[in-house]
Design a protein around this nucleic acid. Structure first.
Lengths: 141, 141
DNA sequence: TATTGTTATACTCTATAACTATA
DNA sequence: TATAGTTATAGAGTATAACAATA
């Protein structure tokens, strides 16, 4: 590596995130899931009945893009979309969706553990505070 | 936010990287550049004559995808591609490419500074070590 | 009027497979 | 044989604009 890039946190952040995403996508491929699908399923499992627009807002997915995204999971038999009030859709997991989530939860827990363990123990407790500070969800999205 | 996600470093890593990319893309849009273009220009400026395949290897861009990627920059008048040895292409910046890089360097320096300053001062020195550890470039790519 | 969901569209990124030409 | 570059193709992510139906 040319090294000149290793000074730039923004650059390393991107490479680290890309590598982590590729790693997790690979691990989740057995379930036909990817990083984004998994987060979505976990969110809906945590809050059954959540509307599609609310889920998109929390996950940073625009409503126009939520259509295909949620449809894919619905067609895979993992997601129910029921009309809530005429315009809102109430989302919930199907039994298959819950079973898939359950299995993939274990894989993702391993992934998260492996990720954390690459960080030297002395710095490990700062991983989340630092990433949260960089993300700054309050104003950036 | 549902909070249940804020325990997962992999998730926060992704959101932080997405937010940072959107931020930088926005700042670079005046120059018609995006995060990836900029890294590429900086790499070639650091090492003029570097081959396209070598640049792709360092930046994690597959050779099939480098074609359109580099062509865009060439057509924008920022990049020279000259035949090096019959199969390799030697890359270098045009004067316009260097000028664009120079201007955008300042913008990116601001971006990197703003990003770092969101991290509390006491943790700031660990940003790069932590991200490097997560990335783990030696084996992951 | 503002929100929810949708369609259409477009660009970028990433990935694989197959090919040509060259080392 | 291995490498450099290319073409073709496909899937996914993201963005905007415009629209219908509903609150």
């Amino acid at each position: 590596m040319t090294d000149s890039f290793l000074k730039y946190p923004g650059y390393i952040l991107r490479r680290a995130a890309n590598a982590a995403k590729a790693d997790l996508d690979e691990r989740l491929s057995v379930f036909g899931l990817r990083q984004g699908n998994f987060s979505f399923l976990r969110l809906i499992d945590d809050s059954p009945g959540m509307s599609q627009s609310e889920a998109g807002r929390l996950l940073g997915i625009k409503s126009a893009n939520m259509v295909a995204f949620a449809s894919r999971l619905e067609q895979a038999g993992l997601l129910n979309r029921e009309s809530a009030d005429g315009r809102s859709l109430a989302l919930s997991l199907t039994p298959k969706g819950r079973a898939t989530l359950e299995e993939s939860n274990r894989i993702v827990a391993e992934f998260e553990r492996d990720l954390l363990q690459r960080v030297p123990e002395s710095m490990r407790s700062m991983v989340i505070p630092i990433l949260m500070a960089i993300w700054n969800p309050s104003d950036s999205d």
